[in-house]
């Protein structure tokens, strides 16, 4: 693409400021966190005495962090699954030329315009066991003694209290998956579906064998976007539930914030953030490699 040396110089000059900025403020600080995470820094004054993997070992031995990792895993799986299923259903229904499509689309997409803080505060009140949705259920004669996010029960390591967070987060992001699925559905050529129909395929079969496979790239990007949101989740938890009973709704981000900025334990805090970075990298890097490979072809 680059034809002459002059053009190369021009390109370098144009992108170098952003390379420098990203280099310093992203990669530089990642390296700095890495260094802090293997240091003895506790208290305000930076102390870079090398302690090897001590912070990491302490971290993985701490019950709270183990709970955090399980919570992250469960939350990620259920949050992504719910968003994708709901998003696809909504998109599929709206795509059938319903009347007032624009209105519905806007309504479903609206929650995404809110910040997690707003969502968190609203859902915190709605799911409050004393004066929240339980009252409504009681008036309807339904079981109404749900603890929601105050419920300390665990089923196979899954904290029931997490369901409240999963509900709130999915409420916010199902609209987003709907929007990208809708775009995906619109880009499927009509003749493909028509010809399947002519061949006598049922609607269910068309969805399973034609539509879903063609939407695979959409699903992949939805998983990536939602996945990195859920692995880094922090603001929703802070606004909605806090650490929860016995850390039932605790996440690495919350633990990191409390360790570093409430407890002044910078070394351990940095170790948590590095673990979080690795978790996100596990999702993002394969995706990037995959995309670049495709572009090269």
């Amino acid at each position: 693409m680059i034809r002459s040396k002059r053009e190369l110089t021009k390109a370098v000059v144009i992108v170098s400021p952003s390379i420098v900025l990203v280099g310093v403020f992203v990669y530089g600080f990642i390296l700095w966190s890495l260094r802090t995470s293997v240091s003895a820094w506790e208290g305000i004054r930076p102390d870079y005495t090398f302690v090897g993997l001590r912070n990491y070992i302490n971290l993985f031995q701490s019950t709270r962090f183990q709970i955090d990792l399980w919570n992250t895993a469960y939350f990620t799986v259920f949050f992504i699954a719910l968003c994708i299923v709901l998003g696809f259903l909504l998109a599929f229904l709206i795509n059938r030329d319903v009347r007032g499509e624009g209105v519905f689309r806007t309504i479903y997409l609206f929650p995404m315009a809110l910040s997690f803080i707003v969502t968190g505060v609203v859902w915190r009140w709605m799911l409050n066991p004393t004066f929240g949705v339980n009252i409504l259920l009681a008036n309807l004669g339904l079981p109404s003694d749900w603890g929601w996010y105050t419920d300390p029960t665990r089923i196979a390591g899954f904290h029931v209290a997490l369901t409240s967070l999963i509900l709130a987060a999915s409420w916010q992001f199902a609209g987003y998956t709907m929007a990208i699925y809708l775009a995906g559905l619109r880009s499927i050529p009509h003749d493909v579906i028509e010809s399947a129909r002519m061949d006598g395929a049922s609607e269910v079969l068309i969805v399973r064998k034609v539509i879903l496979p063609m939407l695979r790239p959409i699903t992949l990007s939805a998983v990536i976007v939602l996945g990195h949101i859920s692995l880094k989740i922090f603001d929703l938890v802070m606004a909605m539930t806090g650490r929860g009973p016995r850390f039932a709704t605790d996440f690495p981000g919350v633990f990191m914030f409390e360790t570093t900025f409430t407890g002044n334990r910078y070394g351990e805090g940095a170790a948590i953030s590095i673990v979080m970075l690795l978790m996100v990298a596990l999702v993002i890097i394969p995706y990037l490699v995959h995309t670049f490979r495709k572009e090269d072809q």
Binding site: E42, T63, P152, P245, R246, G263, N264, R265
Partner: peptide, 18 residues
Amino acid sequence: EVGWMSRINDAVTFLVED
């Protein structure tokens, strides 16, 4: 000090449920 305090809080959070 705050480092100690924050870890006491964690231990007590466990104590309340366990």
